[in-house]
Design a protein around this nucleic acid. Structure first.
Length: 476
RNA sequence: CGGCGUGUGGCUCAGCUUGGUAGAGCGCUACGUUCGGGACGUAGAGGCCGCAGGUUCGAAUCCUGUCACGCCGACCA
């Protein structure tokens, strides 16, 4: 992290974390607020991050056999209503289309809040035989949920995401796909975004409307709040029964398919900001940064300086490099590069050219060093790799240092009163108990991790026999 | 949905109490000097004061209504 605060315009994290977040989002020019409440304008710097996420995630999907499709953005009311739990979960937050031009519609349609019902309606006609299975489809699209309180990336009324929807012949295959995709998300977060996550299963209370089981990856933000960063659901044959999606199996029996769905959204950009950012602005992991290296010429009007800068850019052609040749002062450009989170900076001026070297500076640590021009390419490659891995190490340390345990109710309350982070504690498995915890302490169960530990044999809250260890926390 | 608050150049805001015909800083444009941590000078462009009524000789300012946005709560992946 940079030693001192270099940019006055950004509120420091310790002063007001929410304001810091808003300042970073604006100063890094990721978005602009629009005149449509709860909807944001994603600007080039923000959209380029999303494009990198899309490209790298899509490659990982395709490697597991996923095919992309596109579904309608409208859902007729009768279709949305077919699965009871699902409609109950989403009805309070859908936007309705009631007119076509000047005429009222016979049946109103909602703008998709998620597309399970559309995929089910499609699969119903498209699947007849076991030979048609599995279906492993995904779509990149936007969805609409009429949120009352909105924040850039974290919760907006329209957001971009991908939603995968699969249909399988057996429950085992569906479960396997559910876990496979959760692992794709977790690996992507750690390897590309340098964000460590906790993998686990949601409780009944927190699971997706209509799912049999919901799995999640939970990340910990710098302020100690949790952010659900990706989900994967196993629907069993619930939707198949509601929609009548049947196939004839090898044994000539008519059976219902088993389905899954999984998604990751632009919300993950909020996680990148809140996991890696510092008081000078955004800090992007090299693998996701639209620009990895910014070359800043010093005294660029002096003969040969700009030419040298362009020459270095061409020499660094295997990375994503830009030259800031605007007529701002160097100090301005430094701040700009820092606010935007560009991982590395190269300074090149007349003195450097004469000495055959340049100055490079890491965004994550602020460390500056001199490098001979003929070693620049190797050094940049080496440092970008180092930054990526250091960022993950730092984030992992933060996660570990802000994960606490509690075995008694007093300890549980005390920890949340004094610390911000995850608290691992045993739970009896009863919904009423979970609700009481939320009511009394304003924390929710984040997940029941795959890596279970036995901290005690009693529920941390009610003292009844414990069934699961749960990660608890305050969430975005 | 409930409580509070705010609408004045692109942005942040002053002016409103006590009506007299719109200001500052930043940003923007042009030219020049600068350039190793947000440089400076000179000249310039840009606003029917959220909207609609009303009071008045005269309204950014007073009155009524309305719309939008923000924050806090409730709800919510």
């Amino acid at each position: 992290m940079a030693e001192k605060k270099l940019v006055e315009a950004i509120t420091s994290m310790s002063e007001d974390f929410a304001q810091w977040y808003t300042d970073v989002v604006k100063k890094a020019e990721l978005i602009d607020y629009s005149n449509v409440k709860g909807c944001m304008v994603i600007k080039p710097a923000g959209y380029a991050i999303w494009e990198n996420i899309q490209r790298q995630l899509d490659e990982r999907f395709k490697a597991t056999g996923v095919e992309n499709v596109y579904m309608p953005m409208f859902i007729p009311e009768s279709l949305l209503e077919k699965e009871k739990d699902h409609v109950e979960g989403f009805a309070p937050e859908v936007a309705w289309v009631t007119h076509g031009g000047l005429n009222p519609l016979q049946e109103r349609m909602c703008v998709r809040p998620t597309s399970e019902t559309l995929f089910c309606d499609f699969y119903k006609g498209d699947i007849q035989s076991y030979r048609d299975l599995p279906k492993v489809y995904n779509q990149w699209c936007s969805v609409v949920r009429w949120e009352k309180e909105t924040r850039p990336f974290l919760r907006s009324r329209e957001f971009l995401w991908q939603e995968g929807h699969t249909a399988h012949a057996t429950a085992e295959q569906a479960q396997e796909r559910t876990e496979q995709m959760l692992n794709v998300y977790a690996d992507f977060c750690e390897e590309v975004l340098a964000i460590p996550v906790v993998k686990g299963r949601k409780t009944e209370k927190e699971k997706f409307a209509g799912a049999e089981a919901t799995y999640t990856i939970e990340a910990l933000m710098h302020d100690g709040k949790a952010l659900q960063s990706g989900t994967s659901h196993n629907f069993g044959d619930g939707f198949a029964r509601a929609f009548g999606i049947q196939f004839t199996d090898k044994d000539n029996q008519l059976k219902y398919v088993h389905q899954t769905s999984w998604g990751m959204s632009t919300r993950i950009i909020g996680a990148i900001i809140m996991v890696h950012g510092d008081d000078s602005g955004l800090v992007l992991p090299p693998k996701i940064a639209p620009t990895q290296v910014m070359i800043i010429p010093i005294q660029q009007k002096k003969e040969g300086v700009l030419e040298k800068a362009y020459e270095l850019r061409d020499k660094l052609g295997s990375f994503r490099v830009k030259v800031d040749d605007s007529d701002k002062s160097p100090g301005w450009k430094f701040s700009e590069q820092e606010m935007r989170g560009i991982p590395m900076r190269v300074e090149i001026g007349p003195k450097d050219i004469e000495a055959g070297k340049c100055v490079i500076c890491r965004r994550d640590t602020g460390e500056k060093m001199e490098v001979a021009l003929d070693q620049l390419e190797a050094k940049v490659g080496e440092l970008l790799t180092q930054i990526q891995s250091d960022m993950l190490t730092r984030a992992r340390k933060h996660l570990e240092e802000h994960t606490y345990t509690a075995t008694t109710k007093e300890e549980f309350q005390e920890t949340f009163a004094q610390k911000a982070g995850f608290v691992k504690a045993m739970w009896c498995g009863e919904r009423a108990c979970e609700e009481a915890i939320k009511e009394e302490m304003a924390v929710t169960s984040r997940c029941m991790p795959f890596h279970q530990e036995c901290l005690s044999d009693k529920c941390v809250y009610c003292g009844k026999p414990a069934k699961k260890m749960v990660y608890w926390g305050r969430a975005y």
